[in-house]
Simulated scan of single mutants.
Amino acid sequence: MAAMQHILMIEDDARLAQMVGEYLERSGFRVTHAIDAKAGLALLQEPGPAGRTDLVLLDLMLPDMDGLEVCRRVRALPGELGSVPVLMLTAKGDPMDRIVGLEIGADDYLPKPFEPRELLARIRAILRRRGGEGTPPAAKVMRFGTLEIDRDARMVSVMEQPCDLTSYQFDLLVALAERAGRVLTRDQIMEAVRGRELEAFDRSIDVHMGRIRAAIEADPKNPKRILTVRGVGYVFAKQQD
């Protein structure tokens, strides 16, 4: 399984940082919070137990240093540290701040207040453009006991027997398998397969899950692979067969 991507959030608003951090963690990221520029730059250069940083979420207005200066200092760091993606957040409405931020190397810019979903979409878009820097390449074939999921061929088999899934159901299964052991809400599952044409209602996910279970479970009425977490969503079991 690929390691969780690590976001370093440099933000002096503790309440906002907690809200955003919790949302990003529920969306599959690992988040470290720094309350000011000094702490953030130190964490970036000496990650310690936090691990390598895949993206910096940077507030423009910090108590000890302007966010633009922080971005300049990040870009001046040697090697991979200096190329870490930076997404700037600000309450300022001046378009010049955005222009300057982008000119000195920020990857994107999001004004406050913002919708958490938009922030998440922008983070994921940056990481996709960067080619997934900071995470190992995804395995072409995922294996869970007798279940095999071939990403390139877009085929699923159990005990070497092919399973009949639609393209959309294949994408849903991959989204769950990539996050094996994590409970996902229906919204999170739909977000994970964004870019596909999605049905409007959450319950459509339940119908598809039933069909996926019929294809991959030995006993769809007593599933061992895709489990329902009542009131929350679904989880793909890590240990199978």
Rank of each mutant, 00 (worst) to 15 (best):
L77S: 07
G67F: 05
G21R: 04
V74Y: 03
R72Q: 11
G51Q: 14
L77I: 03
D54I: 12
L68V: 06
M61E: 05
L58Q: 11
H33A: 13
R73I: 00
E25Y: 09
T32H: 08
R72C: 00
G79T: 06
G51D: 13
M65P: 14
I35P: 08
Y23Q: 10
G21S: 00
L24A: 04
G40M: 02
R72H: 07
Y23K: 15
G67L: 06
A39H: 12
F29G: 06
K38H: 11
R52A: 03
I35V: 14
E25V: 11
L68D: 02
A34I: 00
P78Y: 05
S27A: 13
M65H: 11
R75S: 09
C71G: 12
L58A: 03
G21L: 02
P63N: 02
D64C: 10
C71K: 03
F29T: 02
R72W: 02
D54S: 15
G21E: 00
R75W: 04
P78R: 03
L62Q: 08
L62D: 03
L55S: 07
E25T: 14
G79Y: 02
L62F: 07
L57G: 03
G40N: 10
L55N: 10
M61G: 07
V74I: 15
P49G: 14
I35C: 11
G21M: 01
E46H: 15
R52Y: 01
S27I: 00
G79C: 01
K38A: 12
